Simulated scan of single mutants.
Amino acid sequence: MARLRIAALFLVVVVIAGVLGYHFFEEYTWLEALYMTVITLSTVGFREVRPLSSVGMIFTIGLLIGGLGVVFYTAVTITAKVVEGEFQEFFGRKRMEKRIGALTDHYLVCGCGRIGEVICRELASKPVPFVVIEQDEERIRKVEEAGYLLLRGDATDEKVLLTAGAMQAKGLFATLPVDADNVFVTLTAKELNPSIFVVARAETERSERTLAHAGADKVISPYAMGGHRMAQAALRPAVVDIIELATHYHSLELQLEEIVVPLGSPCEGVTLRDSGLCQERGVIVVAIKRASGGMIFDPSMDEKIAVGDHLVALGEIARLRGLERRVETSAPQ
């Protein structure tokens, strides 16, 4: 950028010098002097305004030699900037697509508006791999500043979803501002990958039903949820405080976490008591969500753990990470 400014400054100086020279040496009017300067620097070969004197000829030779150098330098600088920018954008996009192509079990965030930004922060704080699909330039700049993986394009385009790795993705967030677009994204994603978990945003109750029929696993209405939370904040403030403390990504004291029991887990087929999970200090197993969809709140110590169960636990982040490692790798006690 500094070179470009210097080149532009040199060009302005040469033009001003040419105008002044022709005006004072040849007594041309200001317009005639500007005309002579332009045709000299551009080497178009038009006739001069009037025959030049010897001084004018010498001045023109100097202006032509010096001016051509400045014009050439400016042209080369501008061309280099354009080519460099295009190459950077091309290879940057290719590198990004290569990184995205290597992902598996990641999430797609379709649309990075106000809701999409919050989702990205939550995913980044986990952290879990995710890709943002966005085409609005202002939002793209915010995504790039945050350092998230970005794919420029229309999320409703099947090719864009394929490039983002929809067939290998674990989940998708349809947070586009138009409900019809979210319906289309949901339908396309489910067609490409029937096992992908889709969470969709809906503005109206009708859209909620449509998105559910389209295959969305969860449909969230931000306005309904916000209104409910505001009402509960007044009616049950202590309850809301606990929920916010346990679910907010900034919370360092307490977290509500969901741990999936994988195939081959040492906890498979044993009770909570025998697994030793309930003996983990500072952690409470609040509920067990069965793979079939059933939910058991405040499970007893004799409740057996099965593959695919989701253990909902409350505790400090470090303790929860320890519990997660026990479910995946430790031997039952």
Rank of each mutant, 00 (worst) to 15 (best):
M1N: 12
L9G: 07
V13D: 01
I16F: 07
V19S: 03
H23P: 09
F24C: 04
E27M: 09
L31E: 10
L31S: 13
E32D: 14
M36N: 12
T40W: 11
S42V: 13
S42R: 10
R50A: 15
S54P: 14
T60L: 11
I61C: 03
G62Q: 07
L63I: 03
V76I: 15
A80C: 13
F91N: 06
R93S: 11
T104N: 12
T104H: 15
R114C: 09
I115N: 14
L123Y: 10
S125M: 11
P127M: 06
V128Q: 06
F130K: 12
R139M: 06
G147F: 09
Y148S: 12
R152H: 14
D157N: 12
E158Y: 01
E158Q: 05
M167Y: 07
G171A: 13
A174R: 00
T175F: 10
T175G: 05
D179A: 10
D181C: 06
N193S: 14
F197N: 10
R201E: 12
T204Q: 00
R206E: 11
L211V: 02
L211I: 01
H213D: 12
A216P: 09
V219F: 12
S221W: 08
M225P: 00
Q232I: 13
R236C: 06
D241R: 10
I242P: 00
I243Q: 05
E253W: 13
G264M: 10
S265W: 01
P266F: 04
L272N: 01
D274F: 02
G276E: 03
E280I: 14
V285F: 08
K289R: 15
A291L: 11
M295G: 03
S300T: 15
I305P: 04
A306I: 04
H310A: 02
E316A: 09
I317E: 08
I317Q: 07
R319P: 01
L320C: 09
G322T: 09
L323K: 08
E324A: 14
E324Q: 14
S330D: 15
